[in-house]
Design a protein around this nucleic acid. Sequence first.
DNA 1: CACAATTATTGCAGATATGCGACACAATGG
DNA 2: CCATTGTGTCGCATATCTGCAATAATTGTG
Lengths: 229, 229
Amino acid sequence: MSLPKLLLVEDDPALAELLEFRFKGEGYDVTVTDDGDEALILVAEILPDLIILDWMIEGTSGIEVCRRLRRNKETANIPIVMLTARGAEDDKIRGLETGADDYLTKPFSPRELLARVAAVLRRVRPALAGESISVGDLVLDPTAHRVERRGQRLSLGPTEYRLLKFLMEHPGRVFSRNQLLDAVWGNGSEIEERTVDVHIRRLRKGIELTGTNDPIRTVRSAGYSLEPA
Amino acid sequence: MSLPKLLLVEDDPALAELLEFRFKGEGYDVTVTDDGDEALILVAEILPDLIILDWMIEGTSGIEVCRRLRRNKETANIPIVMLTARGAEDDKIRGLETGADDYLTKPFSPRELLARVAAVLRRVRPALAGESISVGDLVLDPTAHRVERRGQRLSLGPTEYRLLKFLMEHPGRVFSRNQLLDAVWGNGSEIEERTVDVHIRRLRKGIELTGTNDPIRTVRSAGYSLEPA
DNA sequence: CACAATTATTGCAGATATGCGACACAATGG
DNA sequence: CCATTGTGTCGCATATCTGCAATAATTGTG
């Protein structure tokens, strides 16, 4: 999962630099180019999660870049936000109809662009837009029901999954076995306290990768917690 | 597949009528209300494919409606386009951050709204916009009612087709058997949960080609999902 | 160090969930 | 009307999970 990758295609150097700075500050992995043809190459290379595309650029025009990306199966699903100095309504319509997901007219506020990019990403890749929980090198995506560690996919049983999810929702905090039983198994479960130990062990085994530390901390006579960092 | 269902929440009668007319002309099934509380009821009732929401309305305010819809699991994924007379940047940001998918400031041209609604729908429900969906090596063309894998045409029964279409509209996401029953069979179907298994198996068989992996993932105790990419 | 308390590990039997084939019946289209 | 195809349920086989208890290992304490 890691950082959302953005490709910024913009030939106004001042604007490009400003946007690059702002987006990097928000935790995006940004690549910049000012040329349409180069953009097409870069897209194939880095497969960004979203493209910000100026209409008027060197080489192949923005709208043509958009059209070509949409035609290619590999890139057809990458969301595109178009920027333009032209305020003409027809351009907007044309941009949106060509397959752009959003369209901003210059001058626009960087904050609005940030918000629109986030909105599009939230829709397209919920896992990237902070809907997934991330603790240390663990990433859990609830909608996909998927857990990764260092980019590697883990397979956990149902209870281990729920247990890990709960711990990741409250990293660093220590929970007694009873608290875990209530939270993970449901209130009033008639289950032996010691059974939690067993599932903790299964979870540890499930998230274990060679060369990694055990992020689950045992707190003697208190319970367990998941190390935040 | 029918028509895309729209809920228009707008309390300026003139604007509401104009938009209703335009959208109906474009082939949408439009429901109109001018009241926030009524909007919430209508949403639950008709489960529209997209909501156009004015910020300033009677009853519960637009942004509050948006917030509530996002909180409810049933309605959290319905796209929302917000309209407002207020041009303030902070409002835009706030609207987008609350979960709106797009945001227009009055006055706007109906054509632009049309184009933006189409763009959002294309992204969220490509099938409604008549676009073909492609996930991994699967391609589904809703207008031709046809499914291909690696260029090879598959033949699926009606239910398998609808099931695959739904899964392809939300790749990667895990759905419980009940969610699939609601989505594919229709709300309140009186069908055995385990029947979903059977259709999943039929679907798997239907999309199976020698030398391909099974893209349908079983998530024990949770449901099924279609692997993206 | 010896001892008690606490936690880790393991194997296992019972419980659950899913896959699979079969079947009766409904719907569909000549 | 018949043949064909699709649909919803069962029941059983299989894979996986779960909770427990017995045993080993660890930690803390005087």
